[in-house]
Simulated scan of single mutants.
Amino acid sequence: MAKRIALIFILFLLGDIYFYQAFSTLISSAALRYIYWALDLLLILSIVALLSFPRLRKNTAKYFPTFISAMLLFFVPKLVSVPFLLLEDVGRAFNGFPARNLYVSELVVALAIILFGLIVFGLTRGRHHYKVRKTTIYFPDLPKSFDGFSITQLSDIHAGSLKNKREVQRGVNLANAQGSDLLLFTGDLVNNAASEVTAWMSTFAQLDAPYGKYAILGNHDYGDYMAWENSMAKRRNLDQLKQNHSAMGFRLLLNESVTLRKDGESIRLIGVENWGKGGFQRYGDLAKATANVPHQSFNILMSHDPSHWDEVVRQHQQPIQLTLSGHTHGMQFGFEIRRFKWSPIQYFYKQWAGLYQKGQQYLYVNRGFGFHGLKGRIGMWPEITVLVLKRTESA
């Protein structure tokens, strides 16, 4: 972890030095140049202090979101300068390294200003910039009665991070406006404590669908990331969280399945507790959850962490046609242009946002409704997923 932080820090520092070359080409004021480096030095010293002093390290969770926001604002826009200035340097090398081109410097600074504005939007309005993403998926073995059946999926509400009731209500209204047959929530209702959702229960209780609403637990829901007085206190917190789900009208699936029936036919909805890799908990038990599932049934699985799909689900003896996950948030930072998408999270998770297919099995990873850590979303907007199930003509 320390090596990764050091590498990121070095990359940011190199980008900063490069950007300063463009900045100094355009700005002749010595005072503004001093201010430039004073702001950088203040941020750098703050990061070093946070990593170096034990007392501050204890409060990392408290200060981390602020420092991440500051780094995004003051370092990331400058990184855009690197490829442009490197290309310019190739040309300058053949001409004895003359002064930097004014127009290249203007372009670099203009792009940095645009990116700075986007980050400001993401840290303010972006956290509630809800996007409905509608996807149609075709299956040869989908029961005819469920042809056109629709599902609204929400994930990663993280109620402990929410503040703006009006905006959250707008997101709930938008989810209900999709008019889906079924509503599914794929985990991380809270950051740590069950009490975080208390003020929001009446809001999320408004979510509705004719075939019901179901939920599973995410890694944050177990209270594993905070210190408790004792194991009983932690257990009571989890019990309270389960009761909160019920009070909001959600049926919580804990390594179990339910049958959904329509016009004499049925599909199976399966929910597992959190299962992750790389140090995350493995409470999920797919074998237990599918113990009573008929072999020929059409199955939809809710599993919070998408790594479960490649590691377990695809090889499981019980075929799972569709898996719904969340967890990654798209790292709340990235960009998506048509079919091209990028986020740093892709270097940690093979499946991290949107629809994936291998053979006849599908995985959809929701980008999350709320936010955690970074107090905003930049380019990776909060998501309300609508999945429409269709039966292929060849079936």
Rank of each mutant, 00 (worst) to 15 (best):
A6H: 04
G15R: 10
Y20T: 00
I27A: 02
I27H: 08
S29C: 01
L32K: 07
R33A: 05
V48R: 03
K58P: 07
F67L: 15
I68Y: 13
A70M: 15
L73H: 09
F74H: 10
K78M: 09
L86I: 13
F94A: 01
N95S: 10
N101P: 11
A110P: 08
L111I: 06
L118H: 04
L123E: 03
L123N: 01
T135M: 13
T135R: 14
L142E: 00
S145N: 08
I157V: 09
H158V: 00
K163D: 10
K165P: 07
N176H: 10
N192Y: 14
S195D: 08
A209S: 07
A209M: 15
K213D: 12
I216L: 13
G218V: 04
H220A: 03
D224N: 12
E229G: 15
M232T: 14
A233C: 06
K234R: 15
R236P: 03
N237W: 04
H245G: 05
I267V: 10
I267F: 04
N274W: 14
R282L: 08
R282N: 13
H304L: 10
V312I: 15
R314Y: 03
L324C: 05
F340T: 02
K341Q: 11
S343Y: 06
Q346V: 08
Y349D: 00
W352S: 00
W352R: 00
R367Y: 06
L387C: 12
E393T: 14
